[in-house]
Design a binder for these strands. Sequence first.
DNA 1: CTGAAAGCGCTTACAG
DNA 2: CTGAAAGCGCTTACAG
Lengths: 332, 332
Amino acid sequence: MDSRRRTVTRADVARLAGLSTAVVSYVLSGSDRPVSEASRARVLAAVEALGYRPNAAAQALSRGRSTMIGFIVPDQRNPFFAEMMSAIDGAAQAHDLMVLTLNAHERRSADGDEIAGLTSQQLEGIISADTLTPQELTIIERNRIPLVYVNQFSARPGHPTFSTDYIAGSRLAVEHLLSLGHRRIAFVGNESHLDTREAGWRRALSDAGVPAGPVFHSDYSLKGGYEAGLQLADHRDAVSAVFAASDQVATGLLTALHERGIDIPGEISVVGFDGTPEAAYTWPALTSVSQPVHEMAHDAVALLVSGDPSPIFRDYPAELVVRASTGPARAG
Amino acid sequence: MDSRRRTVTRADVARLAGLSTAVVSYVLSGSDRPVSEASRARVLAAVEALGYRPNAAAQALSRGRSTMIGFIVPDQRNPFFAEMMSAIDGAAQAHDLMVLTLNAHERRSADGDEIAGLTSQQLEGIISADTLTPQELTIIERNRIPLVYVNQFSARPGHPTFSTDYIAGSRLAVEHLLSLGHRRIAFVGNESHLDTREAGWRRALSDAGVPAGPVFHSDYSLKGGYEAGLQLADHRDAVSAVFAASDQVATGLLTALHERGIDIPGEISVVGFDGTPEAAYTWPALTSVSQPVHEMAHDAVALLVSGDPSPIFRDYPAELVVRASTGPARAG
DNA sequence: CTGAAAGCGCTTACAG
DNA sequence: CTGAAAGCGCTTACAG
């Protein structure tokens, strides 16, 4: 007697039910194949008795597609992406899909090896919150895997792209600060020319006839924000408010400004971007432009499931959440 | 001409190379089967020319195991678990494994449906950072999937368990506060009797002959910490320092204490637990007991890969990271 | 060193 | 309504 109990297969179920394996499949796959009530009951009873679970690999091979979607993310530790990952996972679960996450670890190899590993899993589709290299894109397209972009700054030709309207969102932040009387509004964020938040900040100021304040470039990280904050502190006289392009940056910024003894929002007001849950628990609680992560995640998964390949670009409105890190500009 | 280009299979490679599919497998699977250099070169050239990638589902079916491991986590948005997930992903990548994460979403169904979905993926193994219900455990064991626990408060019979030494870690926090002269040290954390951090706090105090301070129970979340912080503020006279059982709790606590105008560490010192990256950017920067997440993740993956099933319990020492949220107790 | 063939556990026309 | 059988794309004894 073999100590390694064999896995229960649908053949075992068929045997116990006294039916063919085909009927078992008809019952279990929920297809529209007609099955008598008696047979259905016997199959279900046998499944229950044996604790049978279909082998996902066999199903994937046979159907030519799996029950998983891929998610490509720059850094799963970043709270914004963690939130998005969680939202995609939730949306996927509603469609009985699992999410296979590919985390760039800031060191994805250029030749697309990791992407190739992903695509070989027979995925239902891929959602990318990261930019892809031409090689990576080629691999995905050659395997004809549906691809949806999220969190991009512009439309990606050939693939649906669901993104927050970064320009309008940045405008919300700037207009909020303007309405509080601020006229010396700095920007802190990534240097990438793809990122439209700096452009949104600049345009909103120019539309209001207010000169653009200083720009401090930083990585999208707590550390980047902190370092930018130290620089900004050296220019405190030139600034009464800051628009930080991510909550992480804003959080690091806050720490640096505190260290330099700058009162927030008394001396400098700070607005973040993303609307992560942690923004409510910084000190002071961060005013932030919230991205509709759940809507985007839901729609991206839904599109993948629908199988509609039309390459659309959809803009989602951001929303300003006012908390304690912004206040009226001081006179003078 | 079919517009849907067929997927390239190993039969195509074999054809192009002028060899059998078996030889293609021998070359690609890196088995010890002898293959002539000439054949090997032709296979590799054909693979390259066709952009061939093995079908992971077929491989999993044929081999009886996939190239994935599962990771069960209570909440992937929690920075501590995000860090652990990232560490496991990194360790898995080193073994050419992908990680399929099952996020509890605080609402996993009791019948084990989600776990069953995981196990049907022919996983190499499962790492669980969450507690499992008896039903869930039964499903995993019935499918004979190797299981390793991480982040548990006690050994799990029958399965290897890799955890931080919570008792000793809590002692580090308490002894740090004692050495700063604190004698009224509160505890904030989960009510679970499984969680040994409260016991560690209590024992360290009792060993020092110092009476235990007040206890405030809270969820392991920013909100939970915030609410506990409001309560604690009402008892500020009875407390000169707090040991918070997680960085999230400590961060929420900080916000509440700030709101109540309590100076940190001037009036109350705060120590967190986890050692998450964000702890360095709270205000003030949080002193915290750091868990060796990367070592545990590395070892858990390595054990799964090794196939060694011996059910060991391994303790990892935590480390105190002193930052600005703790300071000397005021006289009197 | 190489290849024909069985087998992994499903799905799905097809025939009845 | 049900079942025999081919097929999905691999792997791996086995024979040569």
